[in-house]
Amino acid sequence: MDAARRNSRSIPTHVAALVALLWFALPARGADYSPDVVKAAYLVRFAGYVDWPERMPADAPFIIAVLGSPGVARELRHLLPGHPVNGRLAEVREITGAQDLAKPQILYVGAGRAEYLRAAFPATELASILVVTDEEGGLNAGSALNFLTIDRRVRFEVSLTAADRSGLKISSDLLGVAVRVHGGGRQSRDACSPFNTFDPGDGGCACERLPA
């Protein structure tokens, strides 16, 4: 009777001891990224794969606007200083509505806000802006890119029709990494424009080739 009782108590004790040992023995896993960091890095990377229709003055900043995601805005604020995007100084602007928009190059719309984007931002205001949503079905709000989290990885899908509508050209290399591409658009899938890579040390333009 006593042996049985001791036995039935020993399993939870052993489990607790094992967990405690692991907790204290192994250093915290620093290499696990938060989704916000990965999305911020993506947004900056996307800039190198998109052609905007209008040429900006050489000293105009590259603006990434963020609607409804303090997390991604915070990560962008960490990433951007000291890292030019497409040869320009980049900054992040948090906005709360169409009235704050002021012509950014990229607009990131946080999860749950795509409906608000569709309702409150007229299509004319979004011309020439790369709009990136972040929820299931986000492309229905008219965005050109939409983040999806699959199996603990952040992936994205592309709507070439929306990109066309906004006057943007998207490199086929970006399409190659996308999980899904909607619409054919007028864009040639073979085109690869010369873009800057992200590494500021590389002065010239280079097309980033992805592994096959």
Partner: peptide, 10 residues
């Protein structure tokens, strides 16, 4: 981009 597509997130 390809690396970002393979990063595991919390």
């Amino acid at each position: 981009l390809a690396d970002l597509a393979n990063v595991e997130v919390t």
